[in-house]
Amino acid sequence: MLNNLWRLFGYRVLIQTLVVRELKARYRGSVLGFFWSFANPLLLLLVYTFVFSVVLPSRFDGVEDNYALFLFCGLLPWTWFTSALTESSNALLANGNLIKKVLFPAEVLPVVAVLANMVHFFLALPILFIALALFSATPPGFTELLWFPAVVAVQFILTLGFGLMLAALTVHFRDIKDLLGNLLTLWFFATPILYPWTMVTSRGPSIGGLPPAGKVLMDVNPFAHIAISYQEILFFDGPFGHWKWLLALALGGVALFLAGFALFDRLRDSFAEEV
């Protein structure tokens, strides 16, 4: 397995080529082309802002002044996460030709799915930073921003771990593809993206001496820590206080990635037959 993991590094030219292919192919034939990478998150932001300020006006403590901006900080990474997982779960099936007819390292495919969506995330970042510069009362300071790449790295390794697992298991259970969409929606609402985490940490009953259920739920939700980290760094004022959780999550993320890769590696030989 370690050998294969090392080989993955050797495929970087292939991975890079495929990511570029993915990006080129996605907007080929559309009028706006790459502009969609900017336009999509912007439109998404408009929809959510409209819903939560006009249709279902909600006032969340601490974020009421700049709700759209707060939302944006969590929504962009979530979009990366959710589309990377959806694409990973379908990656092997969609590229069945490569797996069945060519000697092709299958693990490259979920990696490409995660990376391609990361590039989309990066492309949307300028809009986020411009918005922060224009509208934020407390734009992030330099030392805070230093943490930003760390959050991205943690999210990357975590997403990759999930992606590898999903890609391998979907080959055996096609049901995952359908199930996943719904699970991700549930996960989205369980994650403090639409609302600040402070809103839920005190809610719910405490069972057997544990903190309130809302807090427990936040603590065990890995993406909650990712979202909180982004929000603390980008949106909220003051020093980045969530770093201990982030570090723990980084360790967990590496473990998840190794587990995901081990699972993928174990099932590798079955792909050519089951795809």
Binding site: K24, A25, R28, N97, F104
Partner: peptide
């Protein structure tokens, strides 16, 4: 041509 991507 198993690895060709039709759009590019």
């Amino acid at each position: 041509g198993a690895g060709f991507h039709p759009e590019i």
